[in-house]
Amino acid sequence: MSTPVNRDQIKRMLKARKSRMKRYLSHCMHCGVCAESCFLYMKNDKDPQYLPSYKVLNSLGKLYKKGGRVDRAFLLKIKPIVWKNCVLCRRCYCPVGVDVPAMIAFARSICRSQGVYPEETQSWL
């Protein structure tokens, strides 16, 4: 699993969705109101790790912040955030209107493009 990631591809992907994703990221007020709409957050003793905005900021947010200059270790780090901590049920509520699931799905796409995804059933659970 030490094959280097294709940074150019990541950068291309990030750029292609920039106008939408960057807007969303920059308009997330970090208010934390999305919390209760996430059943995983409620189920896991209100652990902030499961906060929808936390998941977005620490996956896609970081990808944009680093401008795509990331390594495989980074992608492996966000893999549990976007797969294990989120099931993409699309029920998150954002008072500003930020589309959280679209961002998680996009973070997943970027991971997938580099061959980072849950390969066995167990790695979802």
Binding site: S19, R20, R23, S26, H27, C28, M29, Y93, P95, V96, G97, V98, D99
Partner: peptide, 30 residues
């Protein structure tokens, strides 16, 4: 040009969202 842009984007984003709290039933898409 900042996070405070939610002043206008609060309304604009609702043109995209197809759920209970949308305006115009989310009839736009990126």
């Amino acid at each position: 040009f900042s996070k405070l842009g939610h002043m206008i984007y609060f309304f604009l984003y609702r043109l995209l969202i197809g759920s209970e709290y949308s305006f115009g039933q989310g009839k736009r898409a990126w």
